[in-house]
Amino acid sequence: MSEQHSNAAHDADHGHHDHAAHGSLKSYFTGFVLSIILTAIPFWLVLGKVFEKSSTTGLVVLGFAAVQIVVHMIYFLHMNTKSESGWSMLALIFTVMLVVIMLSGSIWVMYHLDHNMMPGMMPEAIGEIPHALDAMPAPMDPAMHALHGAHKMP
């Protein structure tokens, strides 16, 4: 009798907590179809060269990626403002902040590395390359290096 009483109390206690609703087959199918569409459109944009500038294509693809992340969170992870008393929303906000910081920092570093490490690829520097090569000493043949080193020994 006490076991039935504790199970009833246990079930009643769980009734007061908000649980995230699990998706139905229809919601999973909707998320799947949206994911396919949100993947196919960027492929078409890139392969069809719809936009003249690659930077525009990149921004549009990033926009579709952001929408697809939202679709995944809603339809597959079942995230909303009511699940887990809002803690999942706080975790989402923190994650978005970290991703934005990491992506913007990575793009900033890659831009400056490209700008500072590849000066020979810029059109104004191409004319200076042959002069720099003429000033460099010619590489030494390994056999000549051995002979040259033998003459230096006392």
Rank of each mutant, 00 (worst) to 15 (best):
V100D: 04
P130L: 04
S35A: 08
W44T: 07
A20Q: 03
D114E: 04
P154Q: 08
M89P: 00
V46I: 15
M136G: 02
L62D: 02
F94K: 15
S88C: 06
D114L: 05
W87G: 03
M121H: 14
P142K: 04
V100E: 03
Y75R: 06
H17S: 01
H72C: 05
E3T: 15
W44V: 14
V70Q: 04
E128S: 01
A20M: 01
L103N: 05
A40C: 08
S88Y: 10
H16Y: 09
H10G: 09
G48M: 07
E124V: 10
W44L: 10
P119Y: 06
H17A: 13
A91R: 14
M144P: 00
S35E: 01
A20I: 01
I69P: 00
K26T: 09
E3K: 15
P142Y: 07
P139G: 05
A66N: 10
A8R: 15
F51S: 04
Q4C: 00
H78I: 05
N80C: 03
M102Y: 14
P137F: 08
S104M: 13
H72Y: 05
E84W: 15
H14C: 08
P154L: 11
A125R: 14
K26V: 07
T57R: 09
M153W: 09
K49T: 12
A132T: 13
Y28M: 07
V61I: 02
G31M: 04
H17I: 14
I74P: 00
L92E: 01
M89D: 09
Q68Y: 02
Q4T: 15
A146V: 11
I129Y: 01
I74Y: 08
V60F: 03
D134W: 13
I101L: 14
I36P: 05
M89T: 15
T56L: 05
P137V: 06
F29C: 09
L113K: 13
V96P: 03
L98D: 07
H19M: 01
V46P: 00
H145M: 11
I74M: 04
G105M: 12
L45T: 09
T30C: 06
A20W: 05
V99N: 03
T30H: 04
A66V: 13
K49D: 03
L147P: 00
W108I: 10
A9T: 15
A66Y: 05
K49F: 02
T30V: 08
M118C: 13
Q4Y: 15
T81Y: 06
D18S: 05
E84I: 11
M79S: 00
A150D: 08
M153P: 04
G31T: 03
A132H: 11
N116A: 06
M140C: 03
K82L: 08
V33S: 12
S6L: 14
I126G: 03
S6Q: 14
S85G: 13
P130V: 08
T95K: 09
A40N: 07
H115N: 07
M73G: 00
G105E: 06
P42R: 08
H14Q: 10
L147V: 12
I37G: 02
A132D: 10
S2C: 01
